[in-house]
Nucleic acid binder design. Structure first.
Lengths: 151, 151
DNA sequence: GACAAACCCTACCGGATTAATGGAGATTTA
DNA sequence: TAAATCTCCATTAATCCGGTAGGGTTTGTC
């Protein structure tokens, strides 16, 4: 499960992408997206620190996308907020760590299986951008059947 | 990330599969797999309750696979120990829950994207069995390149 | 029938994480 | 200067994770 925080971050970015150059103030995002205002502020600061959004302070300030929407991937947002996408530390790109109790990484059956899971998750998350998510369902979706029902 | 507990469960099952009809006592699994003994006992009880393993008490007791190794999937073990595989509650098969703050599930961009992630995770986890994991790397692995390096 | 080896069950616990909340401060524009 | 806005830091309540502890029950052997 992805965290609530990550969901909020993605929702905020989708809203900012829709707003375009006009940008949005935190209160507005919080209200329309049903995100606790103060929590959202922290999230936007995180997104700002890594250069995904920027902000203007003071009256008529607000938040704006800094990177173009088609250059912000779900993967990078998730890694920022929730940490590694990989299901095992020994499969993480951004935070590789040997499993402390693992004899041989080469021969680890569990690692071998989850490597596939990690790869296919990355295939989706690192290729899908905020802009992609905003385009109408039919367009970028070859697998539309998976998307509308609880499978 | 999958939990340590799930990793232990999978390792225990792999060990039991290798042991076959001889079975194994908890102490033996704990030692060879580097799993805290008492913690392992709890895990094996969980696996027993759902009929994946069975046990014999008393002297010369131990644990045995009840289901054939080629009929135990990574997915079912993961769901048992860690809960839903789906990255969003509204995409879970075993524990569907509407996102409390989601306007329209049909139009949720985030849900649409993560539906693909969930599906591809399930494609691997529900098709891969303990027996598969034990067969030599080259055999069931079309994507061997992903499996040996931290990608 | 005592003993030992094994599984079975329940409770607890410390540390980390999650999802916030609160308040004071800095900045910008009118 | 006032108002609106972002910025920063501290705190918190609840939950989860990864165990530990301490028995209790069953089975086989001598």
């Amino acid at each position: 499960m992805i965290s609530q925080k990550a969901k909020y971050a993605l929702r905020a970015l989708l809203a900012l992408a829709r707003a375009g150059d006009r940008g949005l103030v935190t209160a507005e995002i919080a209200e329309t997206q049903t995100i606790p205002r103060k929590f959202l502020e922290q999230i936007l600061l995180d997104l700002k620190r890594v250069g995904i959004v920027h902000s203007r302070r003071g009256k008529f300030g607000g938040y704006y996308l800094l990177k173009p929407a088609d250059n912000i991937t779900f993967g990078e947002v998730l890694r920022l907020i929730d940490g590694p996408i990989a299901p095992l530390p020994c499969l993480s790109r951004i935070a590789y760590r040997r499993c402390d109790d693992c004899r041989s990484e080469q021969n680890c059956e569990i690692r071998r299986v989850f490597a596939h899971v990690a790869q296919s998750a990355r295939d989706v998350l690192d290729r899908t951008t905020i802009a992609d998510a905003l385009t109408s369902p039919g367009k970028a979706e070859a697998l539309a059947d998976y998307s509308t029902q609880p499978a």
